[in-house]
Design a protein around this nucleic acid. Structure first.
Lengths: 335, 335
DNA sequence: CTCAAGAAGGAAAACGTTTTCGAGGTACTC
DNA sequence: GAGTACCTCGAAAACGTTTTCCTTCTTGAG
């Protein structure tokens, strides 16, 4: 391994000077800089980042703690997080925690041991765990896509109230009168917010909340199927359905078709997320899109500010959703 | 920051002893061990992994260099890679390189600077780049899902010949006589292998290769669409279609339906990968499944052996595909 | 000419571990 | 009783950087 000492020797300067040249800090003459760079080039020298991190306390390392990288949602988010981190010169340690609280706790410890400068949580699974780790208070973190009960937690997420309202508005504009909703787990704050936005918008048009059939799902295809079965056993088309993510919408539509209902003629369905498969599904799914790129970008930006101990204007950021109309929603028609 | 020195002081032993206890190497009496562990507990001491890595040359860090984490294929693979790495006590640095050779090169350098013990490449984009980095020769690596031209490169991948044959067998058993294939880019070795397996199996039944319509796609939905348009302009149903991944099959089926053809009645379609969305697609897609879990597991196992400089039996491993029959394939019927 | 200030660069400490080497003690063998 | 093996443990070096502190030299002002 070629070290900074070898560079110093070849360039005929001290180790200190080499370090100064590399880090562009302190004064060095043009001539020495030239010699140092040439020596680096000749020896193909690359600084050892472990040593640098150890000494300088700056590792340029971030932890990415994600529930399930093998889900379109998180994979998408991870991609943009990586992009934003890369642009700022940070590397990411990938921690896929699944449903395993032990693994989550373990990873949290390991990240701290690795001296990460910050941690980004796309949806933390168990927030109480988070704050039970004492040393965590020393490293900045940002939570994406989830509202934490914890008072001061910095978060970046969709404007979920607006998202619910957007879905409602679209369905109302199409003339629908009867509504159902497949929600995510209600213990998750974002789901409650989406529902609130949806119902509030309907209420504005004189549709009372107790007229809207709300069934809880699990954000997965299978949960969407089950929820749709419940809905169809309690109510009959035509109606308009808002699913709190696209996966559940896929499951729900599948069940509807199996039962002989047509989408969108009998049932209009709108999803949420804008999963890339919306386009290829049949019918292509109308959805409330999340701007994943902005969420990730704002998240990393916020985290960096926290790391640099800058003044923060707002510790919680919401980004607006937007509507993508495809073919799973259609004007209401009397049957 | 509480360091090993603090632990030593509190336990009334030397730093050496604390290190010995933690790493379970060398002899220590039960009594001292007890005292050390208690001190660690009291102080909530956690070793600094940077320092450990610097001194011991063992970072327990792996690089994961992936073309696009936001693709179902790689996300799935990444998930199982993470799982396998986690079980062996390794952490992963996530490098998403996209189509950007500069980024790939940069990440390769950074990984080496971070002293990773190995690198795992699910499909390396440009292999020549790989071997142009001189220092890379010092760190072990494994390539997944791609055959490299480079002589000795350790790889783990699907048995692509078998995969192609499996698709052919299934379609033959259904009685089909006319075949088409949407391939991935032919410059990729795995695609050539799949095609070879497919055509060889057909040839066994007396169907000559030049009777099979092969169109090249790009592994994406849009590529599947375009390829299908070409196929339908050159040939007319009924026929059986083998797509080299599921995404292209989705696109192809979409086009077929738009043109008024029925799947599977007019066109039987079989995909490859077993994307989770096969189930929810309509019709649910018959496919040749890749055992992602095994590929990832064998890949990490191989990498670990290389790191530990163990004797390797085989540097290249192939794992068998398996067939999942759903509803996009049906017995051939005269129209 | 003197003096102060600044530019350029070096020696050594420091970061927090592991590892090497060796010291001291105890138990066992002959 | 001497020699030896083994167990237990500590001092100090080492890993490859950055950072602190200091020295030397040059320049310009008065």
């Amino acid at each position: 391994m070629v070290s900074i000492r070898d560079v110093a020797r070849l360039a005929g300067v001290s180790v200190t000077t080499v370090s100064r040249v590399i880090n562009r800090r302190g004064k060095t003459s043009k001539a020495t800089e030239e010699r140092v760079w040439r020596a680096i080039e000749v020896l193909q020298y690359r600084p050892n980042l472990l040593a640098r991190g150890l000494r300088s306390q700056k590792t340029r390392l971030l932890g990415l703690l994600v529930p399930d990288i093998d889900s379109p949602f998180f994979a998408r988010l991870a991609r943009y997080i990586e992009e934003a981190a890369y642009q700022r010169g940070y590397n990411l340690i990938l921690c896929n925690v699944g449903e395993d609280p032990k693994k989550e706790r373990h990873y949290l410890e390991v990240l701290l041991q690795r001296q990460v400068e910050g941690i980004i949580f796309p949806r933390v699974s168990d927030e109480s765990l988070l704050f039970r780790i004492p040393s965590l208070s020393r490293v900045p973190y940002v939570v994406l896509d989830r509202t934490l009960e914890h008072e001061e937690a910095p978060t970046v997420k969709l404007d979920n109230l607006a998202a619910g309202a957007l879905a409602a508005s679209h369905l109302l504009e199409l003339g629908h009168k009867k509504f159902a909703c497949i929600s995510g787990p209600q213990k998750i704050t974002v789901c409650r917010e989406r529902l609130e936005g949806f119902l509030a918008r309907l209420a504005q048009e004189g549709i009372p909340s107790h007229d809207v059939l709300v069934v809880e799902g699990d954000f997965k295809i299978e949960g969407g199927r089950k929820a749709m079965e419940t809905i169809l056993s309690l109510s009959s088309p035509p109606f308009a359905l808002f699913c709190m993510n696209d996966m559940m919408a896929f499951g729900a539509i599948q069940v509807a078709k199996e039962r002989g209902w047509r989408v969108p003629e009998d049932i209009s369905v709108i999803g949420l997320d804008n999963n890339p498969l919306c386009e290829v599904f049949s019918p292509p799914l109308t959805t409330v899109a999340q701007p994943f790129d902005r969420i990730a970008k704002e998240g990393i930006a916020l985290l960096c500010k926290l790391i640099e101990k800058k003044k923060i204007r707002k510790k919680s950021i919401t980004v607006p959703p937007y509507l993508i109309v495809r073919q799973s929603t259609a004007p209401f028609q009397e049957q």
